[in-house]
Amino acid sequence: MKPAPFEYYRPETVDEALGLLAEHGSGAKLLAGGQSLVPTMNFRLAQPAVLIDLNALAELEHIEPDGDALRIGAMTRQRQVERSALVAERAPLLHEAVPFIGHPQIRNRGTIGGSIAHADPAAELPVVMLARRARLHVRNRRDARSIPVDEFFTGLFATALGPEEILVDIELPAVPPSTGWAFDEVARRHGDFALVGAAAVVTLDDSGRCRDVRLVFSSVGDGPVLAHEAARQLEGEIPDDAAVRAAAGAAAERDVDPPSDIHASAAYRRQLVRVIGTRVLARAVERARNGSVS
């Protein structure tokens, strides 16, 4: 389990990294935390000719307020996100989800941007991004643009990132009042790839009806799966237990088309969507009612 030979670069600025990426094209891979890429290389399933190591890019390692929003640099370690008071305050769903990622050793090394750009359908962070309507800021050698998350995840391990683009910054908008959130997942062991993961963000109006519902699942499709039908059913309704269960049931039956593998059949995954969909929605509603977020 030794990787095939490759050229290695360790740029010190984003501009330098973008120049290298443009120069080497599709033969190059970006190395962030390396928690997926390095094992893939050791198995020789990935044999990039060139590795561009982003770990010296201090400019991509930050957590800071941006008006009411929150900005997190793409190379910020998951462990830093987990321990950030600012994240806990302004992005409580992210704060709740990060401990589910692997183990502390993995989060010490793994980055927020690396996981989002990798777009593993079992990963936690893409789910959170989609649930929270994040904006993903990317750059190439000449331009910068920001991509709404609804357009970012385009398929299995596929994103809207261009071949010469690097994800530099993640922007999470402010949480509206009367909003609750929850994250949960079922995994064989803590830290394993989830059999199913789920995030819910629910905003209530003054009459206690759902104004906005985002329910997102991992491990049931090509990427994070937004449960449109479940949200449609709940919006405008009082989210009592029956409504929440019905919405999660709708997600299981109509929003997801889960795969089967050696760990879980599609039928089992549907059951888990129903169960943890219900659980995260119920907890999000409860938090929204309690005004946990102002």
Partner: peptide
């Protein structure tokens, strides 16, 4: 071979996609 041994997690999704 190697792909059978380490790729099961993604097999179904990939083939369907």
């Amino acid at each position: 071979g190697k792909i059978a041994g380490v790729g099961q997690r993604m097999l179904d999704s990939v083939s369907r996609t």
